[in-house]
């Protein structure tokens, strides 16, 4: 088990909390919550050690494109970068959908 931290500047607010993904080999769980700070803070807990550089690349690419101030917790079970990016996109989408429903 390895824990990694990442932080990025952010300006837009995340509409609402989102929880996506599942515990399972090659997959991951993501909890994305709005943050009052103008930052995106990501904590990754992964079962696979030694992929810090890959995480940095994948997360930086995603949060450069998607500017949201959020606290993100990732629980990873060996997901590929493709799966990680897709789950992040899903979390954003769910957050926006939930916001529409609650309006």
């Amino acid at each position: 088990m390895e824990t990694l931290f990442f932080e990025y500047p952010a300006t837009k607010t995340l509409p609402r909390r989102a929880h996506v993904g599942v515990v399972g080999s090659g997959d991951l769980e993501i909890l994305m919550e709005p943050s009052a700070e103008a930052r995106t803070k990501v904590t990754v807990r992964t079962s696979v050690k030694g992929f810090g550089k890959t995480w940095a690349k994948v997360l930086e690419r995603f949060f450069t494109v998607h500017d949201v101030a959020a606290t993100v917790k990732i629980n990873d079970f060996g997901a590929t970068p493709g799966v990680v990016t897709m789950r992040l996109a899903q979390a954003l989408e769910v957050s926006q959908d939930n916001a529409i429903l609650k309006r």
């Binding site: 993904g21 090659g26 997959d27 799966v83 789950r87 899903q90």
Partner: peptide, 8 residues
């Protein structure tokens, strides 16, 4: 039953 699911 979430709206989107991940297909590998």
């Amino acid at each position: 039953g979430s709206q989107l699911i991940l297909l590998k």
